[in-house]
Structure formats: C-alpha cells, structure tokens
C-alpha cells in the first residue's frame, strides 16, 4: 500500500470510469486498490501526472470487479462466475486435458473467494490483482503459475534422472573411442553458442525444443507469424551450427574429420531423456504432429 494518497477528485473520476457503482462498491476499497496498484509501481511518491497516467492506463473495470468480489459483493460474484469461471475451467482443461488441472482451478476459485483467513479476516487472491492486465489474462497466468509449481513440487519426490551429459554419451561410447569426449565438447559448444543468441532466439528455441510448443503457439507467445517463427528457428539453428563448427576448429584445433566425428557422435542414440518430462507441465506433442510443422530445414 502506498504511503501517500491519491487525490479524491482523481479517485472519483476513476471510480466513474470503472463503473464501480454497478457492484455497489464503496469508494474506499476502490481507492485502496488504486493505492495498492500505484504502490506496486512507484517506489516513492510519483509526479501527479505520472500517477494519473499510470492509473488511467489500468484495466479499471476489471479492477473494480476484483475489488467488489474481494469484498464479497453478490452481484459482482454473480458476474464473475458467469463471465470468468468458465474461462478458468477452460484454461485448466487446456493445460491438462486429462482433467488434472480442474482441481487446481477449483482450488484457485476458492482462493479468489477468500477461503484463507488471516487475523480473522477473509483474504482473497483478488487483492493481488492490480489492474495492469485484464482480469482474464491474469487468471490464466495465476493458473499456469500454480500448475508449474505443483508439477515442480511433485518432481521433488520422484527419482532424479541421470545427468544429461553422460546420457548423451552413453550409447556412443561403445562405438567410438573418443565419443564421450566428443559429446561433451559438442554439448559445451552448443551451450556457448546458445548463450550468444539473443534472448528472443533463446526463448524461441526453448519453446520449441524444450517445451514442444507448436509453431502457432510460439507465434502467439512471441507475437510472430508462424512462418516467421519457422524461419527464425532455422536461422538460429544454423547460427548455432556455424558457431559450434568454429569453436571446434579454432578453439579445440580439430581437423575437419574430427569435427565430423563430433557431430556424428551426438547423432547416435542419445537415450530417452526428455527435457519436457524433466520439467513437466507441458503436454508433449506427438512426433507426427510435430513433423507436420517442422521449422524450415529441420531434421525429422
């Protein structure tokens, strides 16, 4: 909560803009929500114009609805249940089509209602909504957050998988005397090459190779057209390949035939270690689905 106050006239104007009177929401809790939002954005008391700009840029109608729901106003809850709860369940089904996330959505719904009590007062998850995004997007983000945390929590109790590098090398060692070294060199070279890419390239690669998102999903995440995603993935992979070749040649002083052996070593059976399984939470697409939309030049 901010230690300074928002001018009453501005609160009144924002209250009107938010149509908070629809929920018979008193001005005081709405003003408190605005102050929480401003306090979350500004460390110190901001310039009045900056404050006004921030507050007017908020999703005020959603903020008013969240305030009213947090305060337990019946008409607001009816509206929320009618408009947003179906979206919540739909999002849960999208994350886990087997129904595993439905329980999570129910739990989240309970938190929104305010089952948890602190100091005898009902605390609603809505109090963490500050209007910087739409309510529906925030709900989906909270749901995804809970889902990932639950999966990671569950993983703690499962047997840890083997280390990745040995797994990469395991199958190859038997066939080639230098395989283990070559695989490790390749792994280090690829890691170094990936680190030199832009954050967006790394993100794109992560979505595609670690999380098995489709090109369309990556496009939605990065606001790119599918074709652009495909082109950029192909370019990033090509950049990595050239970088790795350069590292092996210049840093490791490898001959062309040794470089060939390095690349060949990792194509051998690399085991079944699956990064998405390690992290969990992301539905694996079948190889058939992926083969339909491989980025330009990607191998089968």
């Amino acid at each position: 909560m901010a230690s300074w106050r928002i001018p009453d006239a501005l609160v009144a104007r924002l209250y009107e803009t938010a149509r908070a009177d629809r929920w018979a929401l008193p001005v005081a809790p709405f003003a408190a929500a605005l102050e929480r939002s401003a306090g979350n954005t500004f460390a110190a008391e901001p310039d009045p114009r900056a404050l006004e700009r921030h507050l007017t840029s908020l999703h005020l109608e959603d903020l008013a609805l969240a305030c009213a729901c947090a305060a337990g106003h019946e008409s607001a809850w009816e509206h929320f249940v009618r408009e947003h709860r179906p979206l919540l369940y739909k999002a849960a089904a999208a994350i886990d089509p087997t129904g595993g996330s439905r329980e999570l959505a129910d739990s989240l719904y309970g938190e929104l209602f305010g089952l948890a009590e602190r100091d005898g007062a009902r605390r609603s998850l809505f109090e963490y909504f500050h209007g910087r995004s739409t309510l529906s997007t925030w709900l989906r983000a909270v749901l995804a957050q809970r889902h990932v945390d639950r999966v990671r929590s569950a993983r703690r109790f499962e047997e840890l998988p083997a280390e990745e590098a040995p797994d990469l090398a395991r199958a190859s060692v038997a066939h080639q005397p230098h395989a283990a070294r070559y695989v490790e060199l390749m792994r280090r070279a690829v890691v170094a090459a990936v680190a030199r890419l832009t954050p967006k390239d790394r993100l794109r690669l992560g979505y595609y190779y670690a999380h098995d998102l489709t090109l369309a999903q990556i496009g939605r995440a990065l606001k790119e057209h599918e074709a652009t995603v495909s082109r950029n993935l192909a370019r990033a992979r090509r950049d990595i390949r050239r970088d790795v070749e350069r590292q092996l040649r210049d840093r490791e002083r490898m001959s062309p035939s040794e470089i060939e052996e390095c690349f060949a070593a990792v194509v051998e059976d690399v085991g079944s270690l699956d990064v998405a399984d390690l992290l969990g939470g992301v539905r694996k697409k079948s190889q058939e689905d992926r083969s339909k939309e491989r980025p330009e030049g990607a191998s089968a």
């Binding site: 983000a141 670690a210 992301v282």
Partner: peptide
Amino acid sequence: RTLMAAFIQT
C-alpha cells in the same frame, strides 16, 4: 519458460 509454455496453451 515452463510457466509461459503452460500459459500459452491456455
């Protein structure tokens, strides 16, 4: 990144 991957599916 995992969170975003899950989020995007919603």
